[in-house]
Design a binder for these strands. Structure first.
Lengths: 122, 122
DNA sequence: TTATCATATGAGCAATAGTTCATATATAAA
DNA sequence: TTTATATATGAACTATTGCTCATATGATAA
């Protein structure tokens, strides 16, 4: 991996010791990919709004649809993405399906992210 | 907003009180969009690896390029995305540009995200 | 100055994502 | 059973994203 320097830059700039030391401590490529995947799922306005709502209360698809003011199909599609990522869970209640958050880490992430956004505004 | 129920579902399913109460506490649409934008920036494997590296040390573009084993142009493009989001900052040092993390919230987010991924594996 | 090196950037392209529409499934009521 | 309701899903379309290639910019050295 370290050998493909042709594409990057010349000897003078490249610092093998620093690069090696950093590399040793970095996440393996598999975990970094999973982490990116998690953030990618959180990186959509519709899904954030869904989570923001579910953070307040367990809700059925219908109420989420009304709340977001969008297509039921679109909401269901996004709920599937969140379910696949195990960020929300669902349970049947009669004809309805009730959704709620599946993990407390997620609300922590959302809270910390909001904090960051708020800081940036200053 | 609450009136476009035609697209969603019938009277029986819709719960106006719950929806209203949830809506009142939700993030405004502007902040939720900014929050999604932040997560979107973090939701890419290349950018996560860059942050993971910068978390360990300030690095020039050339070293990052060697570290990630990819095109210098690709790295510069992603650094621009991170810079625009004010997640990393840069300073000139001779011909080189040195990058580092711009905000301590970010490492917190990455750490919390990693925690979540680790938990999911169990 | 000119040449070289490190980085940035615009255009173009392929892959992916989010939405809508139509329809399928599942539960309940008549 | 038949009908209606709530949700899920596949296909199609458009918009966005990340990469590559070529080139521009900016700084140092000769």
């Amino acid at each position: 991996m370290l050998e493909n320097r042709e594409d990057s830059c010349q000897e003078q700039c490249f610092h093998p010791e620093v690069v090696e030391s950093v590399r040793r401590n970095m996440l393996g490529s598999v975990p970094s990919d999973e982490l990116a995947q998690l953030f990618k799922v959180l990186g959509d306005n519709t899904r954030i709004r869904i989570l923001d709502a579910l953070f307040r209360s367990e809700l059925c698809v219908c109420d989420l649809t009304a709340l977001l003011g969008m297509n039921q199909s679109a909401v269901s599609h996004q709920l599937r993405v969140l379910r696949d990522a195990r960020i929300v869970k669902s349970r049947k209640y009669g004809k309805k399906v009730l959704y709620s958050l599946d993990d407390e880490h997620i609300s922590g992430l959302v809270r910390m992210g909001s904090e960051h956004v708020r800081e940036l505004k200053k």
